[in-house]
């Protein structure tokens, strides 16, 4: 009875006026993109174009799905098997800068790419990880890990400092972001999260004997996996759909041509491209390598660092956890901080 009380009362106690907006915003975005595609493509009536579109769309989903499932399974296991106050206790014991630093390097311990990141980050915050450290980890883990280092080094065989630069720039960027977020959170917690109350209190799993049995725990975990899978897949599918529309209609040379002569434009253009293309952090270095003859290394670094931290696909998934204004703020911060550190790094190296 207690359980049913919680279920029926809770939503009434915290009405969420935000929810209806989301599904309306997303189709609108899709519609705008579609109009853009039709405007840009003279061959829009061509079935070949739309067959290419579904291929790219399903391809992105197939590629993201293993990592999303991995993230969800990890998050559900953390949910059930790790003590509710694990990170909260850690956050009390550790000084905040040390925690942010640890989160920045967390990708080495737990490399998760951006597709599987959101469920894990949300779970970590529910276990009491401070938002500053969580956001730091969210931005850091898709870049600061050995797999991405190796693939970047392979993509730029003649410029090994490119891979080093990607790591170094990402490291300083996430530290800056973590620091700024910790200031914001210090002022107001509600700025960041959609349901801040669900992170504040300690979650109380029933402590009785039946719950502690493994089958019940697994059932609980599977329950969570199903819910989180649905919730995240809706956003992932939307993101993949819009990304695929861009993939089939956006001439890459537009950005390269437009950004000649002006370094600031070049940075901005390449970061926009990284955002729209939503490439995997392990394969975007090869795309960047194909631009080397046309663009400056500093802006390529911006492309490589910005893309995994923020892209179309992940922005949509972030909306299940973070408020829109925070996502916007994060995007603006990254747009400023990433080119800054990339330029500093290049001027040191070359």
């Amino acid at each position: 009875m207690i359980s049913s009380n919680i279920r029926s009362d809770d939503p009434a106690a915290h009405p969420s006026p935000r929810l209806p907006q989301l599904p309306l915003l997303l189709p609108l975005l899709l519609l705008l993109t579609l109009v853009g595609v039709l405007a840009a493509q003279p061959l829009a009536s061509n079935t070949e174009l739309w067959r290419t579109f579904t291929t790219v769309f399903v391809s992105i989903l197939l590629e993201a799905m293993p990592f999303l499932l991995l993230g969800i399974i990890l998050s559900s296991l953390v949910h059930v098997f790790i003590a509710p106050d694990f990170f909260r206790n850690m956050a009390v014991k550790w000084p905040r800068p040390a925690l942010v630093l640890f989160a920045a390097l967390g990708g080495i311990l737990l490399p998760i790419c951006e597709c599987g990141m959101i469920p894990v980050v949300r779970k970590f915050m529910q276990k009491g990880l401070p938002p500053s450290a969580a956001v730091t980890y969210m931005c850091a883990a898709p870049i600061l890990n050995p797999i991405v280092y190796a693939s970047t080094a392979t993509a730029f065989p003649s410029a090994p400092w490119m891979a080093v630069g990607r790591m170094a720039v990402a490291f300083f960027v996430v530290l800056t972001i973590g620091w700024i977020v910790s200031i914001i959170v210090h002022r107001s917690h509600t700025f960041l999260l959609i349901h801040p109350e669900s992170y504040r209190k300690t979650s109380t799993h029933p402590k009785n004997q039946t719950y502690l049995q493994l089958p019940n725990k697994l059932r609980h975990a599977a329950d969570h996996m199903g819910k989180e899978w649905m919730e995240t897949t809706v956003y992932l599918t939307f993101g993949a759909c819009i990304t695929a529309l861009f993939q089939i209609s956006f001439p890459r040379s537009l950005i390269v041509d437009a950004s000649w002569m002006n370094p600031a434009l070049e940075h901005a253009g390449l970061m926009t491209l990284a955002y729209l293309l939503s490439l995997c952090s392990t394969s975007d270095a090869f795309i960047a390598a194909s631009f080397t003859s046309m663009l400056a290394p500093a802006s390529l670094l911006s492309f490589l660092v910005f893309g995994p931290m923020m892209d179309l696909k992940t922005t949509l998934m972030m909306m299940t956890v973070f408020r829109k204004r925070f996502i916007l703020l994060l995007a603006c911060l990254l747009l400023l901080v990433v080119p800054l550190f990339a330029t500093i790094f290049i001027s040191i190296v070359l």
Partner: peptide, 13 residues
């Protein structure tokens, strides 16, 4: 049942 207040967010969604 797997009742815990950790599902509040999912309930809302």
């Amino acid at each position: 049942s797997s009742a815990c207040n950790c599902t509040t967010m999912e309930t809302k969604h």
